[in-house]
């Protein structure tokens, strides 16, 4: 720790860290409750994870191992920058391996690898208030939380079913924590909601611009809201990951060319890489065939899918194929 003298350990000054820790402790004591805190200016713009970074900076110690993911990926700008930031200002070990990380800062995903006791998942939250788009007044939403008036949340789900025939909310899907507070799980896909339920890991949520911190302690009930005749269900995918053949994981669509070619791959890059490097590992269900080396190259350039195209085919498109 010789070259970090320019900054205090983990960038924030000790008073700020204490203030944030107090907010975190309060959040843990009242699961799902949004604790206001004096969010600081960070050396990055709002919307890039200022809340998550402040939470991480307040809980990180020299012995921690940090992993940062952005939409599940360890290698995108946001993830790489935040990892580099903490490496510089806290001199901590960083990793992309979910299992060996002690703190995982995440933007909008929960890793596929099950989290364990002792791990902390730090979410970057843009809009912490689940009722915000239904009730614009902060005074009113706080009152609604205080009095547990959550009928309005179901109005949103009702509207979904009335318009689309099913609950069409796919991310930031509202949950009820420990039977009391309705909480926005940040814009994670609802695919990840069940992972929050009774998770052995501590989950902390930081919203820098909105100046709110909230928390889900380990082994807390997290129930996704639904209707009796329209129960909560997660997304399913027709095909497995095109790279590692994983099933029952969250997939991202990757556009391959201008001709509509695309493939679906794991959004969790660490999970995907591990499967490809160790195709027979029992940890991943032991699918030897299809995974990693057995990749069929033809699936990478599948035919254009008309339904997925927003634009009409343009002039000269696909000419070079002829």
């Amino acid at each position: 720790m010789t070259d970090i003298a320019t900054y205090n350990f983990a960038y924030l000054d000790e008073q700020t860290k204490r203030m944030i820790r107090r907010a975190i402790l309060k959040g843990i004591a009242i699961p799902g409750y949004q604790v206001p805190f004096a969010s600081r200016e960070m050396p990055m713009p709002y919307g890039w994870g200022t809340g998550g970074v402040q939470v991480t900076a307040s809980i990180i110690g020299p012995d921690d191992v940090l992993k940062v993911i952005d939409q599940g990926a360890d290698d995108t700008t946001n993830a790489v920058s935040i990892r580099a930031f903490f490496k510089k200002v806290a001199n901590v070990a960083v990793t992309t391996d979910t299992a060996s990380a002690t703190i995982i800062q995440t933007r909008h995903r929960i890793p596929e690898h099950p989290l364990t006791a002792g791990q902390v998942l730090v979410y970057q939250v843009p809009i912490p208030e689940p009722l915000r788009f239904l009730e614009p007044r902060e005074t009113e939403t706080r009152k609604m939380h205080a009095l547990e008036e959550y009928g309005l949340m179901h109005v949103k789900l009702y509207e979904d079913i009335a318009k689309h025939g099913r609950i069409a909310t796919t991310y930031a899907y509202p949950v009820k924590v420990e039977g009391r507070y309705v909480m926005d799980p940040s814009p994670t896909p609802k695919f990840d909601n069940p992972k929050m339920h009774r998770s052995p890991a501590l989950q902390l949520f930081g919203a820098g611009r909105e100046k709110r911190i909230y928390a889900v302690p380990p082994f807390t009930e997290v129930v996704s809201l639904d209707f009796e005749d329209h129960p909560f269900e997660v997304q399913t995918f027709d095909q497995p990951c095109a790279l590692c053949a994983a099933e029952n994981v969250y997939l991202d669509e990757v556009i391959l060319d201008d001709h509509g070619g695309h493939m679906f791959v794991c959004s969790d890059t660490d999970h995907c890489e591990k499967r490809r490097n160790a195709p027979t590992s029992p940890l991943w269900g032991g699918r030897a065939e299809g995974a990693g080396g057995g990749l069929d190259q033809s699936t990478l350039h599948s035919a254009p899918t008309p339904a997925l195209r927003a634009d009409p085919p343009h002039k000269g498109e696909g000419k070079e194929k002829q």
């Binding site: 309005l152 179901h154 639904d226």
Partner: peptide, 8 residues
């Protein structure tokens, strides 16, 4: 819904 009706 405010009084707890949960059947669409």
């Amino acid at each position: 819904m405010a009084v707890g009706d949960r059947h669409y």
